[in-house]
């Protein structure tokens, strides 16, 4: 992870957790009040994604990334709690870039708006927390060869330049 540079393209296989707006709000509230977290954030990869419902006979529905900047205010707290990588789409704030550098974590871009194509890389899906949030619940996904582009590397360098 440390050797990746912004702009590098990789194929990722392994476990990731979906979490977007409301799940972030809850996770950060839990961290701040010292409550037990529903997932282990140490070394975790977070994917900003709220999939569609799962059609019969499939592992998952359409499942592309959502706009990352909405999660900017929560991201430094999650990185501090041990998150190692984030997957989303679009730009990040300066604070997020600084936090990625500080905690040696990486922000990846997934193909934006290509949820049908991305669903082909998901081999399993398991709901793990905040099920009441529906599409915003946390799911554990097992992905194979998921195409990713390094958006901000662990030195805080962004593919979009400094903004």
């Amino acid at each position: 992870m440390k050797n990746l540079k912004s702009g590098n393209e990789i194929l990722y296989s392994g476990r990731i957790y979906t979490a977007r707006d409301q799940a972030h709000k809850r996770l950060v509230e839990a961290i701040k009040s010292g409550r037990r977290l529903p997932i282990n954030l140490k070394g975790a990869i977070i994917y900003y994604c709220g999939p569609t419902k799962t059609p019969k006979g499939r592992v998952i529905g359409s499942c592309g990334p959502t706009t990352s900047s909405r999660m900017d205010e929560f991201t430094p707290d999650l990185l501090k709690a041990g998150v190692k990588a984030i997957i989303g789409k679009g730009r990040r704030s300066k604070d997020v870039a600084a936090a990625l550098k500080k905690y040696k974590a990486v922000y990846f871009l997934a193909y934006a708006g290509l949820g049908a194509l991305i669903s082909k890389h998901v081999k399993s899906r398991r709901p793990v927390a905040y099920i009441d949030l529906g599409p915003e619940a946390i799911y554990e996904l097992e992905v194979v060869d998921l195409p990713l582009i390094v958006g901000v590397d662990s030195k805080g360098r962004s593919i979009y330049g400094s903004q």
């Binding site: 569609t52 359409s62 592309g64 049908a116 669903s119």
Partner: peptide, 13 residues
């Protein structure tokens, strides 16, 4: 893929 598999083009429907 979306058309063939009757999957949403984007998860944000």
């Amino acid at each position: 893929i979306a058309k063939k598999d009757k999957l949403a083009i984007c998860q944000d429907t």
